[in-house]
């Protein structure tokens, strides 16, 4: 069953066509990779899916529901979590609070309930906290839960962003260059980790990545963007041998 369907998505910024009629179907449970040179429109695509941009043309369907014009927070509440290419943490909040904020979309204690401290709110707080701690355990940041987020090392910040996105209990997780700035050892760990959370949390994962070996190893299917157009789609083996992909992206050496 398709989780996410993109039908003829186009995006223009003041005459510049950042995306041009992109079609894509992401099936439930798969790890789907998007690759392409810088400026190909990968991050723009993520911003469209999460409602930060409204696409100029085309339809966006998440689990049989059109989400074209839906606000970012409502899309998040449907169960789409994401990370950002240029890390966006809540810097002056603790690591634990970053993850606790992550569950905002699936919790419900409102303003007055919070003021009054009703039992249902206290119960929910407990759940939020214990779940946040579990997630921190999972990404190996439990010992640093009281640190400020901006005191973490770069790799730790990337992991914290994933933990925050998972706190939303998403069914679809968007990872924007999760391996950026990692060494090869860390990349291997990351791949294991992505595989692990997919199975344990029954996730569908859509990821944008520059690192070819990572994408080719863990993705079941890959789409290639170039100048805002999708020039190829298929399993890794097929992409590796696709003439157009080799020409425009992988280059001569690949």
């Amino acid at each position: 069953m398709p989780v996410l369907t993109l039908e003829g998505i186009s995006q223009e910024f003041g005459g510049l066509r950042a995306l041009d009629g992109v079609n894509m179907v992401v099936e439930e449970g798969e790890i789907f990779g998007i690759i392409g040179p810088n400026g190909a429109g990968k991050t723009t695509l993520f911003n469209i899916i999460t409602g930060i941009y409204v696409p100029s043309e085309g339809d966006l369907i998440f689990k049989e529901r059109r989400i074209n014009r839906m606000a970012t927070h409502n899309i998040a509440r449907l169960g789409i979590g994401r990370t950002f290419q240029n890390i966006r943490l809540f810097n002056k909040l603790s690591v634990l609070d970053n993850v606790r904020v992550g569950s905002h979309g699936i919790s419900r204690s409102g303003f007055f309930k919070s003021l009054l401290g009703l039992p249902s709110m206290l119960r929910e707080e407990k759940e939020i906290k214990s779940r946040a701690e579990e997630l921190l355990e999972l990404v190996g940041l439990y010992d640093k839960k009281m640190e400020y987020a901006d005191n973490l090392a770069y790799g730790e910040q990337r992991r914290l962003e994933i933990a925050r996105a998972l706190a939303l209990k998403p069914s679809l997780l968007l990872l924007d260059e999760p391996a950026a700035g990692m060494n090869s050892g860390e990349k291997v760990e990351l791949m294991k980790f992505i595989e692990q959370i997919r199975q344990e949390m029954k996730l569908t994962i859509l990821l944008v990545e520059h690192d070819m070996s990572l994408v080719m190893t863990i993705c079941e299917r890959i789409a290639v963007l170039d100048y805002g157009r999708k020039i190829a789609e298929g399993p890794p083996e097929e992409i590796k041998n696709d003439e157009r992909v080799i020409q425009s992206y992988l280059g001569v050496g690949a």
Binding site: T50, A71, R82, R88, F90, K92, R100, H104, I106, S107
Partner: peptide
Amino acid sequence: SRMGRAFYAIRENEIAAASTGI
């Protein structure tokens, strides 16, 4: 509380806050 953390999150990073469902 949950609401308080959401207020802080808006101050820290509005786009990230929205993407957690705030």
